[in-house]
Design a protein around this nucleic acid. Structure first.
Lengths: 343, 343
DNA sequence: CTGTTAGCGCATTCAC
DNA sequence: GTGAATGCGCTAACAG
């Protein structure tokens, strides 16, 4: 197992020129061998490959991407790696492996006071050279025409823009609210999600639809902002739940905020679901393990991630894809909902 | 040849030359302004910034990384995005955000028949240019001296190599096995993990330690390979559990393989834990939601990820870090273990 | 078959 | 202040 390795072993990264020097050939020849091009003598090829193995050389993704058209790498851009985005990532990962693509998940720095527009920055930094296409998770603004194919998951509201995939937010929210109504609840609050996302708006619409359907008047005082976040929701919920005419049930726009409602209820000594029923949305892993386990609308996060990747591959191959894909959301009844308390 | 771009919005990616042309200045001037260097007139600077904002320009990570020393990006290299690696990722993500670093998680293509050495390839492709440092999750081989700082999580067995962090695999395995012994089990099988990982070897050692401590002779026939994977384990467990003298308890090297044992037991009509007790290791989210919920040794995956990132930052700042860090693993008793069946 | 030349997008010298 | 020149690691097109 010995290729000639002289004393001038490079200290840092092994580059193509190290290999060329060591093998006594030119740089382009190494490139050809490494990329399996025709037109290299078998003996030369073998010598180069030996040196490559001995030195542990691999082409730099950065450098090659600068020259090549395709890198065979798909980017998935997230604001942060948390339960929701990471479930999507798992789904995308299996699909990418099956399709022979590598996956690069990127979480750029989000400016604290203006978390809007991070995806534009991330896309701009990676697109064009490093990645062939991008999946953007919960973009905050409309993605402008990009230089590479893009698929958005749980997109910003608005027309135009890239192909998007999400679950049936409107229908799911209707089912969630109807579930509470059927349990006898009449004073049902809603924790609103991130105002900039279509999902949040659709979930609020579904909530209002089901109220109307049941003849329950909409009360704006029962709708508060939670921003899809646990802590923010817990604060808003504390106020909501200390009112004299507090609601007997809450439909939270996502599981994270539903967990915030549970936390607030705990602190106030309210029992869930005896005093307060709570429904979430998403079915992140934590929903199963909370106390009590969360009744929620399950999004097929794994499938969404996988299908987003499939759609992106279609786009990369020059095929058309539907501009809007919706997957079903399904009610999962667990322990956080029960009959309305009798007055 | 680049096509001439008129004064309207460029079609492809916005490059620094687009900005320069639009602002009527030279490329170096744009570079200075964007990077906040001195020597640019305020008026010029403002004009450039306006164009930057209008065009949505961001420096290309690829191009700048090629010239710059640091990119402010930390890489986390995984073989695949699954429950285990993704939990680490979540922990690393919060730590990275706090420290002002961006995170790039990369899952390269793993050759089907030789899944060994993927981390070397990934590291080689990203190091030196794209990322300042790397966290490698469960590397399969010893990482050679690298051009960038590296921290390994759940590393390959062996001396030398990069700084590593893992949980107390040996102690945890002892506790797991002792737990089964205290429940009265005597015939305790072990599902071995991936042979190339130190964690798997240590967990087997802990198993044998506790057997010896209790005066139970070690029976090689009760140790089978599961490769840390559910499917592979289910197959091995089927054979194990159909023997006449089948074990009454199993210590599986990780939760994925413990789930495989549960699956096999289900198929064979064995009740868990009445007929068979099972202990896992890791406490991935699925452990809480299996039927029955899994008794396991909880690794603080979130903390491990966060601490790996901290260590890497120390290294990047030129400080020393311990070469081996161990975090405690804690027994979590759930529903998959019970008293040994009476004969 | 192999080496030479050019250039990807950008940052960094240097001159002017 | 600016433009021209240079190089990062690599590959495409061509010349030898």
């Amino acid at each position: 197992m010995s290729a000639p390795v002289n004393s001038s072993l490079p200290l840092g990264r092994v580059t193509i020129s190290d290999v060329a020097r060591e093998a006594g050939v030119s740089i382009p020849t190494v490139s050809k061998v490494v990329n399996g091009r025709y037109g290299v003598a078998p003996a030369t090829s073998k010598r180069v490959l030996d040196v490559v193995a001995a030195l542990g050389y691999e082409t730099s993704l950065v450098a090659s991407s600068l020259r090549r058209q395709r890198t065979n790498v798909i980017g998935i851009l997230v604001a942060e790696f948390e339960s929701f985005s990471v479930e999507l990532l798992k789904g995308a990962s299996t699909a990418a492996a099956d399709a022979g693509y590598e996956l690069l998940a990127y979480s750029g720095l989000v400016a604290g006071n203006s978390p809007v527009g991070w995806e534009r920055r991330s896309l701009s930094r990676l697109a064009g050279t490093l990645i062939d296409g991008a999946i953007i998770v919960t973009p905050t603004v409309l993605i402008p025409t990009s230089s590479i194919p893009v698929v958005a998951i749980d997109p910003h509201t608005g027309q135009g823009g890239p192909s998007t995939i999400d679950s049936d937010n409107l229908g799911g929210a209707r089912v969630a609210t109807r579930h509470l109504i059927e349990l006898g609840h009449r004073r049902i609050a809603h924790i609103r999600g991130r105002r900039d996302l279509a999902s949040a708006q659709l979930r609020e619409s579904g909530y209002r639809d089901s109220l109307a359907e049941a003849g329950i008047p909409f009360d704006p005082a029962l709708v508060v902002d939670g921003g899809y976040q646990t802590v923010q929701t817990a604060e808003a919920a504390r106020e909501l739940l200390t009112r004299a005419d507090r609601p007997t049930a809450v439909f939270a726009a996502n599981d994270m905020s539903a967990l915030g409602v549970i936390r607030a209820a705990d602190e106030l000594g309210l029992r869930v679901p005896d005093d307060l029923s709570i429904v979430g949305f998403d079915d992140i892993p934590e929903a199963r393990t909370s106390t009590p386990p969360l009744t929620t609308l399950a999004q097929p996060l794994h499938d969404i991630g996988a299908q987003a990747l499939q759609m992106l591959i279609e786009l990369l191959d020059g095929r058309d894809v539907p501009s809007r894909v919706h997957l079903p959301a399904e009610l999962v009844v667990r322990g956080s909902t029960g009959p309305a308390p009798v007055r």
